[in-house]
Design a protein around this nucleic acid. Structure first.
Lengths: 146, 146
DNA sequence: CAGCATAAGACAACGGTTTTCATTTGCGGT
DNA sequence: ACCGCAAATGAAAACCGTTGTCTTATGCTG
């Protein structure tokens, strides 16, 4: 179907660096944070290149993307075990993959029930992890659960 | 507890207009679209005011907010029956409220299981509604379901 | 090693949203 | 009814993340 006489991806120092930095992170990171981290490590990579690389990774399905409340894009390498939803701690950024089969099933049923096709779903969970839990343990009720 | 000698919200022509326009919409709308609609109706309201009003409504929980793929904020008055999740048609913008009890339960359980507190959830569904369904019915497989 | 398409990088442009600040205007007090 | 002030408005500028442009550099294939 598809001749492979031409490599679809050129191996460059910069892309390697972005990939390395991305995998070194244990939470979601923004393009800018990634760029800052690289710069701090003495690696010279243009911000534009970081953005471009992340977009490529996104398009090819190698990273998961969420949006934080400011509309900023946050990236994380996609694990190969199929998990694709996370709970992210609002305080420290700790993110855990969660089992989402139930949601997948729910989405599929909804789609069928209302006659929609090609239904795509975004599920983002944020909270406060056990470690960051405020001492008082009580006064945390302002979160508009949308 | 709280003296009401001072009104917390001043009634202005502009706010009334924004509220009216918002309720006149039957789908999610952006701040800019709302402003354009108002202007088209001959109502003079500054774009800044539209943004400000929407933010107030958001903060006070009177509207639901979603983000489209460009990061734009889309607003819709929150119905009082408790429904808070929607399926939005990518083609025509038609949006239907869906029953989300299952997801609410799922979220609550996840939160308990992993020890997170104050877990907030964002669930956004997009698809193609029956009316907009492409005639061929088949070639729609590029949607990265994240 | 040559040729060339792809990638990098600096910088400008873009678009949505928020801030600033001077001016106007509800609204409670008198 | 009128005053006075804090709150609200509006135009323009600032912001900020992201994307486009264009020139230069560099992998890769032949």
């Amino acid at each position: 179907m598809h001749e492979r006489t031409r490599a679809e991806w050129r191996a460059t120092r910069q892309r390697a660096a972005v990939l390395r930095a991305l995998h070194a992170c244990d939470t979601f990171v923004s393009a800018q944070a990634l760029h800052a981290a690289l710069t701090a490590d003495g690696v010279t990579v243009g911000l534009t290149t970081v953005y471009r690389t992340l977009r490529l990774l996104e398009a090819s399905g190698h990273v998961d993307v969420v949006r934080d409340s400011d509309g900023e894009r946050l990236y994380r390498p996609r694990p190969d075990d199929g998990h694709r939803h996370y709970v992210v701690c609002r305080e420290c950024g700790l993110s855990l993959a969660v089992d989402s089969e139930e949601v997948e099933r729910w989405v599929a049923r909804i789609a069928r029930d209302i006659g929609f096709h090609a239904v795509d779903h975004t599920v983002e969970l944020t909270g406060v992890c056990a470690r960051c839990r405020p001492a008082s343990g009580g006064r945390r009720d302002q979160w508009s659960s949308q």
